[in-house]
């Protein structure tokens, strides 16, 4: 059963083609990783899926419904939640209030029901001790966790994680990977963009590689990482 279907997706910024005829399907319950060099169009792809950008061509379907023209809040209510690469917490809110607004507006819950859900998510994301602290006072790891927790508070079926491990130390990264693994076990479908490939491979079942807005590989993580194209474009640049 496919949850997300993308066909012929195209987006240009002037002469730069950030998404060039991208097509893929994400099955319900799957964890998909997306890698690619800087400027490959990974975040653009997320913005197209979450609704922050509208495509020049192509369609996006969630559960078979065409959501290509839907606005971001409608996509959120339909079940798509995202984290931002550079955390964008509501800084004048507490950590708990950050989740509450997501659960009440995105998840369409009453505040009382939302409180229970938010408490459980905070506990799972190890943010409970900071629940009543202002989001503006959090450390980077806590902000990354908050991005994920806030997205989860909307009770999504599809969770888009944008470089959630970027900028973290090795041990913080391992801790976050642990949390994401636990999350997977709850059944939520995950699409995860990450530069830190070993973190990604520890979680995902499938890997897509983007370069210059095009999909150049799609499949089993080990097979994708060892293919000649990917070795040349991706690993070659990093080495």
């Amino acid at each position: 059963m496919s949850l997300l279907e993308i066909h012929g997706l195209r987006k240009c910024f002037g002469s730069v083609v950030a998404a060039d005829d991208i097509a893929f399907i994400v099955a319900a319950g799957e964890a998909l990783g997306i890698i690619g060099p800087n400027g490959a169009g990974k975040t653009t792809l997320f913005n197209l899926i979450a609704g922050g950008l509208f495509p020049d061509a192509g369609t996006i379907r969630l559960d078979g419904h065409d959501i290509t023209a839907a606005r971001p809040h409608q996509r959120c209510r339909a079940g798509i939640a995202r984290s931002y690469q550079i955390p964008r917490p509501f800084e004048n809110f507490t950590v708990f209030e950050n989740l509450l607004v997501a659960a009440v507006h995105g998840g369409r819950k009453s505040e009382a029901d939302a409180a229970q859900l938010c408490g459980e998510i905070l506990n799972r994301c190890r943010l409970l001790p900071r629940a009543n602290a202002l989001a503006g006072s959090l450390t980077l790891l806590e902000r990354k966790r908050l991005e994920m927790a806030r997205a989860l508070a909307t009770a999504p079926r599809l969770l888009l994680l944008d470089e959630i491990a970027g900028g973290l130390t090795e041990s913080e990264c391992a801790e976050l990977v642990g949390t994401i693994k636990e999350l997977r076990a709850t059944g939520v479908t995950i699409v995860w963009i990450e530069h830190i490939v070993h973190a990604l491979v520890a979680v995902v079942d499938r890997l897509i590689v983007l370069n210059f807005g095009r999909k150049i590989a799609d499949g089993n993580p080990q097979a994708v990482m060892s293919s000649a194209d990917v070795q040349q474009i991706y690993i070659g640049i990093e080495a």
Binding site: C76, R88, F93, G106, A151
Partner: peptide, 11 residues
Amino acid sequence: DSEDAAESVGV
């Protein structure tokens, strides 16, 4: 605090 983030959580 953030119009974009607000929209992305369903506001």
